[in-house]
Amino acid sequence: MRVLVTGATGFIGRRLVPSLVADGHEVLAMTRRPDTYEGEGTAVFGDVHDAASLSPALEGVESAYYLVHSLGSEDFVRRDAQAARAFGEAAAAAGVRRIVYLGGLGDDSDDLSPHLRSRREVEGLLAEGGVPVTTLRAGIVVGHGGISWEMTRQLVEHLPAMVTPRWVSTRTQPIAVDDVIRYLVGVLSLPEGTDRAYEIGGPDVLAYAAMMRRLADIEGRHPVILPVPLLSPGLSALWLALVTDVDTRTGRSLVGSMVNEVVVRDDAIREVVPFEPLAYDEAVRRALAERAREQEDGGSS
């Protein structure tokens, strides 16, 4: 199958492309800088914020993965909405038969954060052009380089004691990045008419504080975690920017989402793409091992 992957150089995309190639697909890796692309597949120019660039990138494509967002932008809600609408329309015009989108968990009945509401909006806008959309909704993805995961790791490693916001008691259902990739590849071969939103997560439902404590145990650390109810989202974002390399704007969007419980309520995905997801501790060990290998190879810290 001829498949386009947007965000091919990102945290998910750079893992998905080689998996699709290994599965026998013809993969087009969409990037704004194809001349410098060094991954697998065939690099093609495209920018979701440049509607004119999408038609050439989508030519002959049967299925497309939409893995981009503008979380670091001040007006990310507007930018992501415009990009999703343009991509959905261009995909329909090109005859694409399926769009696969990685969105976010969270109950629609909850007072969702702007970040999670935007993810829901993107689901609908991608489908407006008429192309069926298969959405995988995930919480924290545990893997080296993922923003939420790196924030968790850096907090544990940089602070012997943490005065934390109340969101550390919110429950989430982390999932290993390897399992996200397995689901993304798996839904590509689902029969027509099965396109819908699927919720994905690992086997462990944990509060953020428990996630940090279990990571600390694996690394042999013993941080003190002291929740403070009055630490506002704005102050929380500043606090994150001081002790991690997550910028304040992105941190504020992520913190805003951490007040929402993000757990799997519908496990239908386990029937259509059956396998046993990795436990949280194993996902952590794999993420730490990948980071260690990158450091040994002279990569970033």
Rank of each mutant, 00 (worst) to 15 (best):
Leu230Phe: 11
His144Gly: 11
Ala210Gly: 12
Gly256Pro: 08
Val187Asn: 00
Pro203Arg: 04
Arg171Phe: 14
Thr248Ser: 12
Leu230Cys: 10
Ile181Lys: 09
Leu215Ala: 07
Arg249His: 14
Gly202Lys: 02
Asp245Cys: 11
Val255Lys: 05
Thr248Leu: 13
Pro233Phe: 02
Leu188Arg: 02
His144Tyr: 15
Val187Trp: 00
Glu219Phe: 12
Trp167Pro: 02
Gly193Arg: 04
Gln173Leu: 05
Met151Tyr: 07
Ala241Asn: 11
Glu199Ala: 04
Leu242Trp: 15
Thr244Glu: 01
Thr250Ile: 08
Leu215Asp: 05
Asp245Leu: 09
Val264Gln: 01
Val163Ala: 15
Val262Lys: 14
Val177Gly: 09
His222Asn: 15
Leu188Trp: 00
Ala207Gln: 13
His158Asp: 12
Arg249Ile: 15
Leu231Ser: 01
Val259Thr: 15
Tyr198Ile: 00
Thr248Phe: 13
Leu206Ser: 03
Val168Gln: 02
Leu206Val: 01
Leu184Cys: 00
Ala161Ser: 12
Val228Cys: 15
Ala161Asn: 09
Thr172Met: 13
Ile218Arg: 14
Ala161Pro: 10
Ala176Cys: 03
Ser253Glu: 11
Ile225Glu: 09
Leu206Pro: 00
Asp195Leu: 05
Val259Arg: 13
Gly251Lys: 02
Pro174Ile: 06
Pro203Ser: 04
Asp195Phe: 07
Arg171Lys: 13
Thr172Gln: 12
Thr152His: 14
Val180His: 00
Ser189Arg: 14
Gly201Trp: 05
Val156Glu: 01
Ala161Asp: 10
Arg153His: 11
Leu155Trp: 05
Arg213Asn: 07
Pro191Asp: 04
Val185Ser: 05
Ala237Glu: 03
Gly220Ile: 11
Gly145Tyr: 04
Pro203Glu: 03
Ile225Asp: 10
Val205Trp: 04
Leu215Lys: 07
Leu206Ala: 00
Gly234His: 07
Val246Glu: 08
Leu155Asn: 08
Ser148Thr: 13
Val168Ile: 06
Arg214Asn: 09
Ile218Glu: 14
Asp204His: 09
Thr194Asp: 13
Arg166Trp: 11
Ile181Met: 08
Asp247Asn: 13
Ile181Asn: 08
Glu199Leu: 05
Val205Lys: 04
Val255His: 03
Leu231Met: 07
Leu184Ser: 00
Pro223His: 03
Leu155Ile: 11
Gly251Trp: 02
Gly201Asn: 07
Arg166Phe: 08
Gly202Pro: 01
Ile200Pro: 01
Gly145Phe: 05
Met151Leu: 14
Tyr183Val: 01
Val163Ile: 14
Leu238Arg: 15
Leu240His: 03
Ser189Val: 10
Asp195Gln: 12
Val259Glu: 10
Asn260Ser: 07
Pro223Ser: 05
Ile225Met: 13
Arg166Asp: 11
